[in-house]
Design a protein around this nucleic acid. Sequence first.
DNA 1: GAAATCACTATAGAAAAGATAGCGAATGAC
DNA 2: GTCATTCGCTATCTTTTCTATAGTGATTTC
Lengths: 93, 93
Amino acid sequence: MALFDLLGRHWAMGILWNLCEAGPLTFRALEAKCETITPASLNKRLKELRAAELVHRVEGGYGATVLGDRLYDHLLSMADFSLEWADHLSQCD
Amino acid sequence: MALFDLLGRHWAMGILWNLCEAGPLTFRALEAKCETITPASLNKRLKELRAAELVHRVEGGYGATVLGDRLYDHLLSMADFSLEWADHLSQCD
DNA sequence: GAAATCACTATAGAAAAGATAGCGAATGAC
DNA sequence: GTCATTCGCTATCTTTTCTATAGTGATTTC
């Protein structure tokens, strides 16, 4: 449940997603990727994700750890599911 | 991203988790399972999850839809990962 | 050495969540 | 029939979190 709690925080999954997808990103680049996030929130999430060893500082900004990458695999499979889900929803409306 | 947004809301994954694990539950039973949730939040999340067709009303309260169950599979595999993650964290500290 | 870019921090307002109490409807015992 | 219990919520108020916007000092660029 601790994992769900951490990932349930605003933009937590989005940050990990972007870091894994686009490789190491600077603070500013991440800020731009997560279009609606504010620097204060981004900084907070980064601190939490770093404390959780899912993200760490690398040359060129921030990057996912090995663990973060493994979690990303799960997010990927959830993203697959989300397409199916979107299909289903559009059929119902 | 819409899925991450929905599931990122407070207790959203926990609610789905409990519904899938414990079968149909009444509002009060769910409230008890999610120990720290308030009825106002629970009601809000339930409305969102129902709008997303992941949860629906059934005899005996609320239950997961077929789609919700499929999403639960992904949560399960994330829970597996979380054990690994917890191990890793405890080693570092 | 002035300008741009970096990673943030500060502050103020809006939105979400938490705590607690209570409502009307249905059920069941007496 | 009425009293108590359980049901699914709703209302109110406080606290926490997020957003918007501006700005800081440090480093790099020209």
